[in-house]
């Protein structure tokens, strides 16, 4: 248990009377990159949205079982405080359209009324953009609107915005599904670089992406966690037949 940043123990999630997640058990340690893969509707996005309690924003959503962040029960925490510790990047890049690149990066501070000195702001912006591998592309245009960037740059801007808050864990919900292959490759490279400093959980229906970026992979199917293991093992020698069928494309 020690060193587990995120721990799910018999975690369940529901939409009304529909059970979306069944008895999920998962332990994510510090500085690991986890990928959750599975076909559409397998509950992987629901799981990631339970971690920062975005799931409950949908009417009729309920959860059960235990889910802890650094040993603290996520569902006993104040959701607003929880979300500041959990960075999230979404399927479509969503920089704030009214803000410049600079303002987007520190949006987590300004929107929460956390005051920073001018030099501290500059520092946060520069280091976050550097960590998101975007600094050298945008440093001369920091005060332009974030929405002028290309899709891939916007997504890296969103990653920078999440990193600026120094999250305990970074969640990525199919972060490249709206991007072209070149931008996808850049985002994947970025994730590879980030894994020395961050704990990352990425949800993807693209299993090649799971293979490329993660250390550990979990396979979800119909709301159940079918298998979890080292990514290498999952992709060379899966233990479960369903996993095998999914990764070889012989599904259904």
């Amino acid at each position: 248990m020690e060193g587990a940043v995120l721990n799910a123990d018999g975690f369940n999630a529901y939409f009304g009377s529909n059970q979306i997640l069944k008895d999920i058990r998962l332990e994510i340690r510090k500085n690991q990159v986890w990928a959750i893969m599975g076909p559409s509707g397998c509950g992987k996005t629901t799981f990631i949205r339970c971690i920062n309690r975005m799931h409950e924003l949908t009417p009729g959503a309920r959860v059960g079982g235990s889910l802890t962040l650094d040993g603290e029960d996520i569902y006993a925490m104040n959701p607003v405080m929880l979300r500041r510790k959990v960075g999230m990047v979404f399927q479509r890049p969503n920089p704030f359209p009214t803000m410049s690149i600079y303002e987007n990066v520190i949006a987590g501070y300004t929107l929460n009324n956390i005051r920073l000195t001018r030099s501290k702001k500059d520092e946060v912006v520069e280091s976050s953009l550097k960590r998101a591998a975007l600094w050298y592309e945008v440093r001369s245009a920091l005060h332009q609107k974030g929405t002028f960037l290309s899709g891939g740059q916007q997504q890296r801007l969103c990653i920078a915005r999440a990193l600026a808050m120094n999250p305990e864990i970074l969640l990525l919900d199919e972060p490249t599904s709206a991007l072209d292959p070149m931008s996808t490759a850049k985002v994947e490279e970025l994730l590879h670089e980030l894994k020395t400093q961050y704990t990352i959980l990425i949800v993807t229906h693209n299993m090649q992406q799971a293979a490329r970026v993660s250390d550990k992979t979990a396979f979800f199917f119909l709301g159940e966690m079918i298998e979890q293991n080292d990514t290498k093992t999952i992709f060379t020698n899966p233990k479960n037949e369903k996993t095998q069928n999914y990764i070889t494309g012989h599904f259904g």
Partner: peptide
């Protein structure tokens, strides 16, 4: 080799 084939195609 096997790992690279499997993970990176």
């Amino acid at each position: 080799c096997e790992d690279i084939f499997a993970l990176f195609t």
